[in-house]
């Protein structure tokens, strides 16, 4: 459903992505883990069509993001790490605009938007200009806009960062519901516990390359101080685990 094929991207002399390839199947939630600067956001931005790769391709629902962007982006939902909006518009106006450019049925989409907003505790603020929104509320709005059309491919860049606990639970449940409905979800996060609970598989990026791909069964066990993925992650970075283990 989402296919990353030999993706490479440089910023000047620095390699952000080097020949990255993997696939996210329909109905699967894949976690993307990596240290700061490992290339997670570059990968997600490139997959969402926000920047072209130097080489390689991204196929979303069978459409190449580079050569057939309209059809590919119709299938993609992207929840940005640092979302931006027209601050003068209300949240409802923004969602109505996104719904229109995605050619969705207004009534059904409105109903879905309100239901999701209610579960994220955003409903009372839907008619306020985005200008007054906190960081967490902006992230919720970005997530809501990304899932509004039940995307076949969902790209989440630190999407739940800034969510309060009840909203984070609601968002995770929405992600699971989307996966059950057949969406392919690529979920980037620094919080290994969230990835462990949510994802079926993880891709570990290190210095722009895929260092490891692990299925849930391969994570092993954690210990008193580390979750299973945190151990794998620290091992990959060569950092000594806490407590000198």
């Amino acid at each position: 459903m989402l296919e990353i094929q030999a993706l490479s991207r440089r910023y000047g002399d620095r390699v952000a992505l080097a020949d990255v390839s993997f696939r996210v199947r329909a109905g699967e939630i894949v976690g993307l883990l990596g240290a700061n600067g490992a290339g997670k956001s570059t990968l997600l931005r490139t997959a969402a069509g926000l920047q072209p790769p130097d080489t390689g391709h991204v196929l979303a629902a069978g459409h190449d993001v580079g050569t057939d962007p309209l059809r590919a982006k119709q299938a993609i939902g992207y929840a940005a790490e640092e979302p931006s909006f027209h601050d003068e518009l209300s949240a409802r106006e923004y969602l109505a605009f996104v719904s229109a450019v995605r050619s969705l049925d207004p009534d059904a989409t409105h109903e879905r938007a309100v239901r999701l907003a209610r579960s994220f505790e955003l409903e009372p603020r839907l008619d306020e200009p985005v200008l007054g929104f906190s960081h967490g509320m902006r992230k919720k709005l970005s997530f809501l806009a990304a899932v509004l059309h039940t995307p076949r491919v969902l790209l989440c860049d630190e999407a739940l960062e800034g969510f309060d606990a009840p909203s984070a639970l609601a968002a995770k449940s929405e992600l699971r519901r989307l996966a059950k409905a057949g969406s392919a979800i690529l979920f980037s996060s620094h919080v290994t516990e969230t990835v462990e609970r949510l994802c079926d598989r993880v891709v570990l990026l290190h210095e722009g390359r895929v260092a490891r791909e692990l299925a849930r069964a391969e994570w092993g066990a954690g210990d008193d101080q580390h979750s299973p993925l945190a151990r794998v992650f620290l091992g990959l970075l060569g950092a000594p685990p806490l407590g000198g283990r």
Partner: peptide, 28 residues
């Protein structure tokens, strides 16, 4: 916090829309 007065609710249809499932590339 900067004051953010509520705006009148916008009907979703104000921005247009159409029945779902229509391919993205059509002229509609």
């Amino acid at each position: 916090a900067r004051s953010a007065p509520a705006t009148p609710p916008a009907p979703f249809s104000a921005f247009g829309g159409q029945t779902p499932g229509r391919p993205a590339g059509t002229s509609d």
